[in-house]
Nucleic acid binder design. Structure first.
Length: 485
RNA sequence: UCCGCAGUAGCUCAAUGGCAGAGCAUUCGGCUGUUAACCGAAGGGUUGUAGGUUCGAGUCCUACCUGCGGAGCCA
């Protein structure tokens, strides 16, 4: 009886060779499998990530040719399958002439099913190599039109134009795996604390905050609709229905921002908690980020090394534990004044203004973990933020700045809970009152203090992976000048 | 929207205003332990577009296009 954690053969009892044939789909494959069915049964399917569990055994790997080196009558094909890479060893004397010649002529990224024996080897980066017995070419890439992305350096334009192929490279695959873990850990954090996921609409009738530019479209006879830039206003409603809620989905900004921190389409996870104040929110934010980092470190040490090329990032992430430093706007301003006096930043920070990107970078560089900057001047913040009872010119809000200059990854606040104040704010911000009638209702029928934040997934991934640009954090990035592929 | 940088072989980049080059990729040949392997050879060019200056422009000037980085705004 076969057994293997990720082998479909092993998971189905008493699978006979003729049944394997049914899973294959070309005449060529069918004949080959019939001839080698016994071999394949003895060489269970494995993922490359788990190949070490099969040391000394014959296995089958389904994947692609990642690289090919040769030394006379010895070939070194490297295979990848989406979980990792492994180098095959093919001495001419050890395989049939057909297998040797097939592999020797194969172009990179041709799809292949390989059988071979797993052998531990100190020379291999992963510790294992595959002594190849047989290879079946699923589809051969043409030498007339070789795979465009080589192991050498490429420019961002070239790579983004071929994003559908670029993501096959080990580094890009690793980033996407870490992204998936971050998204799963983020949901897991809220799910295990009795939050209810309530996703807001993506098509909205008006601006949530009224400031940023929105993507606009016709909506039948109802006039214009807009792609959401935040689900916050809606989840305030669901929070008052369900207590603790979160939303998780794509959001859209039509801003003409061209920086390493901006996409026009990005994913945001937003919790909203009834009866929570700003201090509750900051505790939630630090526990949330610490949980995400813990999960990434549990699963992705090898991926982080692939992505960053070293162990530095793992060491830095190990520091990311609650509590995070808390710095008031006034304290942050004082830090910046001192920094300017010492020549550490180029421009002085004007008291009362929001922080610019260089200011945020300086502040975050003073700490070894994310820093929570709270109580900004109300004048530079959104209309729905609750004023600080101790200083009405300040808002009960918090920005969480990631280390190493990755900027704001979380923005949150306690929300205005007074009907009269909220109505006054809507009017003074020049927003159309009729669009916010439903939102004001939340302050009319059982209003409570409540707080929430939003975290941009892409900035979080960029920070945790140590990336130059958020365009690498999402399978298909949407930026100002690019909507292909 | 504003500021700055760039555009030369499939890719990454060279080329004082004076013969269009290299590495990688591709093809052919060599090598039994290579790790972005290495060694030899071949093929591969409307120098982003349109004008202009000049005996002569990849190089200088003007406009435009495309991309990149940043500011503002934001996550």
């Amino acid at each position: 009886m076969l057994s293997c954690s990720d082998c479909r053969l092993g998971s189905t009892p008493a699978l006979r060779p003729t049944q394997i044939v049914v899973q294959m789909n070309t005449r060529h494959t069918l004949l080959l499998v019939m001839a080698t069915a016994e071999t394949i049964l003895e060489a269970p399917l494995t993922s490359i990530a788990n190949i070490g569990q099969h040391e000394g055994q014959a296995v089958t790997v389904r994947g692609w040719l990642y690289n090919l080196r040769s030394s006379g009558k010895l070939l070194f094909p490297t295979f990848r399958d989406g979980t990792g890479t492994i180098q095959g060893i093919v001495p001419k004397a050890a395989v049939s002439p057909e297998v040797f010649e097939t592999l020797k002529a194969l172009q990179l990224e041709s799809s292949v099913v390989v059988t071979g024996r797993v052998r531990a080897d100190q020379r291999a980066p992963s510790g294992f190599e595959l002594d190849v017995d047989d290879v079946h070419v699923q589809q051969a890439v043409s030498a007339d039109d070789p795979f465009p992305i080589t192991l050498k350096e490429h420019g961002p334009d070239f790579l983004m134009e071929r994003r559908h192929l670029w993501m096959r490279t080990p580094r890009q695959s690793a980033i996407l795996r870490v992204r998936a873990t971050i998204m799963r850990a983020a949901q897991e954090f809220f799910d295990t604390q009795d939050f209810t996921r309530t996703d807001p609409p993506i098509l909205t009738p008006a601006a949530c905050e009224g400031t940023s530019e929105l993507f606009e479209m016709k909506y039948f006879d109802e006039g214009n609709a807009y792609l959401t830039q935040s689900g916050q206003l809606y989840i305030e409603a669901t929070a008052l229905a369900l207590g603790k809620v979160y939303s998780f989905g794509p959001t859209f900004r039509a801003e003409k921002s061209k920086t390493r921190r901006h996409l026009t389409e990005f994913w945001m996870i937003e919790p909203e908690v009834a009866y929570a104040d700003l201090d509750d929110l900051m505790r939630l934010a630090e526990d949330f980020l610490a949980h995400i980092v813990t999960r990434v470190l549990e699963k992705h040490r090898i991926d982080l090394k692939t992505i960053t090329g070293g162990d530095d990032k793992v060491a830095k992430l190990a520091n990311i534990q609650a509590p995070f430093p808390r710095v008031s706007y006034d304290e942050a301003h004082a830090m910046l004044e001192k920094a300017f006096a010492e020549g550490a930043i180029e421009k002085p920070h004007e008291y009362g203004d929001d922080f610019g990107a260089p200011d945020e970078t300086y502040i975050s560089n003073q700490f070894d973990r994310p820093v929570m900057v709270h109580r900004y001047p109300a004048a530079v913040k959104a209309f729905y933020m609750q004023p600080d009872p101790e200083d009405a010119t300040k808002a009960l809000c918090v920005d969480v700045l990631a280390p190493e200059g990755y900027g704001e990854i979380i923005g949150g606040s306690q929300r205005v809970d007074s009907y009269d104040l909220l109505k006054e704010r809507i009017l003074s911000h020049g927003l159309p009152l009729e669009s916010f009638e439903w939102y004001l209702d939340l302050r009319k029928y059982g209003s409570v203090p409540h707080s929430g934040f939003g975290m941009g997934i892409e900035r979080c991934v960029a920070w945790i992976c140590g990336l130059e640009h958020v365009r690498e954090t999402i399978p298909f990035a949407r930026t100002l000048n690019r909507i292909y592929p």
